[in-house]
Design a protein around this nucleic acid. Sequence first.
DNA 1: GATGCGCGTGGGATCGCTATCATCGAGCGG
DNA 2: CCGCTCGATGATAGCGATCCCACGCGCATC
Lengths: 342, 342
Amino acid sequence: MRQGTGDGGRAPAMADVARVAGVSAQTVSRALGGHPNVQETTRAKVLAAVEQLGYRKNTAAGMLSSGRSRTLGVVTLQTGFFSRTALTVGVERAARAAGYAVSTAATASLDPAAVEDALLRLADQRVEGVVLAVPLIRVSRRIEQLTAAVPTVAVDGSRTPDTEVVAVDQSAAARLATTHLLELGHRTVWHVAGPGEWLDAASRAQGWRDVLEAAGADVPPALAGDWSPASGHRAGLILGRIPEVTAVFVASDEMAFGVIRALHDLGRRVPEDVSVVGVDDIALAAYCSPPLTTVAQPFAEMGALAVAHLLRQVARPAAPPAPVSVEPTLVVRSSTAAVRAS
Amino acid sequence: MRQGTGDGGRAPAMADVARVAGVSAQTVSRALGGHPNVQETTRAKVLAAVEQLGYRKNTAAGMLSSGRSRTLGVVTLQTGFFSRTALTVGVERAARAAGYAVSTAATASLDPAAVEDALLRLADQRVEGVVLAVPLIRVSRRIEQLTAAVPTVAVDGSRTPDTEVVAVDQSAAARLATTHLLELGHRTVWHVAGPGEWLDAASRAQGWRDVLEAAGADVPPALAGDWSPASGHRAGLILGRIPEVTAVFVASDEMAFGVIRALHDLGRRVPEDVSVVGVDDIALAAYCSPPLTTVAQPFAEMGALAVAHLLRQVARPAAPPAPVSVEPTLVVRSSTAAVRAS
DNA sequence: GATGCGCGTGGGATCGCTATCATCGAGCGG
DNA sequence: CCGCTCGATGATAGCGATCCCACGCGCATC
C-alpha cells in the first residue's frame, strides 16, 4: 500500500526495489539500465517490483555516481521570437527520442557576460552537449573555454573555435528572395536588415547585395531594424516616401508586416506599387493582408539536426567538426507582383 | 595553473577549495551557502580559493545530499503559441531572481497520459514546485497524485484538488470585447471559439454569451477553431457568407487574422462591413492590416505571479490555496468600427 | 579431469555535497 | 574564578545510484 507518493515515508530507493525483487541493488541497476547480461526472468522480477513500489530512479544520484547527466543544454534568447521557439521544439523532440533531457538557459542579451552566465548554468548541470541558439556578437575567452569543454553546436552561423555549425544558409535565403524580385522585373531591390550584431542579419544583407551586384543593379543603402514589427514600420515610413522603391526584401516576416503597414499608411499599395518579401514563414504569413511572400526556414529540422550532431560527438568525441548547411525555400504569396508595364 | 576546465584533471571539488583556503570542507559549504555563522575573514578566504580554482558547486551532489533541488518546473505545450512562450519567460525571470532554476517539460498533447509523463519528468528532477501551463481536459487519478505531492500552480484556470490558480479572467476578457462591439451599435456579436477542450476557450465563450444575454441580444451559434490562423480562415469563410454578420469576437489574434483574411477574400471589408476583435495582443496585432482591436493579457506578469505563489507555498506548505485573477485590458485599434447608419 | 572462459550476480567503494553532532575558545553573570 | 551559553569551526555519516572486482556456475577445450 505504500506507493511512494502519498504517505509520509520517503520515496523508494533502489535498495527497496532490490529487497522486494529478491535480488541485489546492483542487479536492479543493471536491469533498469538495459544492460545485456541480465537474465530475462530476473529483469521481469525487477520490473514487477518497480511497478509495485512506484519506483523512479533518482537522477541526481545517478548523475553524481556516473558523472553522466543524459541532458542536453540549449542557450537561447529570452524572447518570443518565432525562430527560437520553433527550434527549441525541434531540439526537445529529437533529444527526448534519444533518451536525453533538455535544459534551456535563456539569456536576456547577447552580451558576452550574459551568454557566459547561461553557459555556466548549463555547465553546472553537467550537460553533455550544448546547442548554441544565440548569435554571438563577441566571443569572450571565457565562452571559448566553456564551449571547448563540452560538445557544442551553433545553429545560427556564429562559431567559436570548437563549435560545430548547423545553420540555414541565410545568404541563400536572401538570394532566393532578391532573385525572385528581380525576375519580376524590378529594377533593383531595397533591404530592411536585422540588427547589425546578428550574423543572420549580416548574411542576409550580404546575399542580397551579391545578387544585385551580379545582376548589375544599383545597390541602395540598407535600413536596419531590430526584428520587431515596430522597427519595420519605421523603415517602411522611410521607404514609402521614396518614389522609385518598388521592391523590398525584409529580413523577417514580422518586420515585413510593419513595412507593409507603413506603406499602406502612406497610400502605397502592396503588391501593386511595392512588392515585399520576408523571411521565416511564420504561421500568420499566409493569413495577414496581403499574404506574405517569404523564405521558409526549417527550424524544427535544424533542431533535430543539431541534436543528431551533438549525440554523434558525444559518442565519438574525436569526430571532426563539419559545418552543415540547410537550404531555405521560397514561398510565393500575394505580396509580390510583376512590375506593371508603365 | 589547473583551472578546472582545460586540463585532463577532474573538476575541483569542495575539498580542493577547502585545502586551498586552509579550512574544512564544511566551512566552505557554509560560506558558499550563505550561512550566518561564518567569520567574514574566513568567507573571504573561501571566496578567493573558489575564484582561483574556478570552482562551481556540483548541483547533483547538493541535491542528493540535501534533498532540495532549488528548481521549479513548468509543464507546457510543445507549440509556438505566443501565450505559452510569453508566460515561460515571465516564470523564468522571476524564478531566477529568487535563486531558482527552471526546468520545462513540454507535452505534445493534452492527453492525460502525456501530461502525466511531463509531470513525471519533473518529479524525477525533484522540482520543488510546478507551474501547470496546460489546460487540463481531463484530470487523471495519477495527475492528482503528482500535483498533490508538490506545490502546484495552474495558470490557465484548470485545476486539480490541490492546485492553486493564477489566471487571467478569460470571461472578463470576453465581456470586454463583446461589450465594446455592442457599444459600437452592432445588433449582436458572433464568436469564433478555441478548441472545446480548452478551459480558456470555454470561459471566453461563456463571457461572450453572458453579455449578449444581459443585453437582450440574439446569441448566434459559435464556430470552433483550433487557435491556428487556418482554422480562423475556415470560420471566416462561413461567417462572411452570412449577410447579417457585422461583428465577430474571435478567441485569439491568430485566428482573428484568419477570419479577416477570409472576409477579405469574400469581398467584405473590415471594419467597414464587419468589425473583428481578437484576444492576446501579439506583437503583430498592431501592424497587420487592419491593426487589430484585441484584449491584451499580461502573460509575463502572470508567470511572475505564479512563481511568487509557488515560493510562498514552498516556504510555508500550510498556506491555503487562494485563486488569483488577473485583469485583461482592451486595446482598441482599427478592426472595429461603429455600425453605419444605413 | 583440470583449465579456462563467459555469463549472471553480489559486495564494497565511491561520486561531492550537506546534516548532525562534537569541539573549542571567548564572553559573562554569580 | 567557575560554569554557562553562544558563536565559529571541524569530523563523521549518510544521500542513492554506478563502478570495479570477485565469485560461482556451466560448458567447451586439451
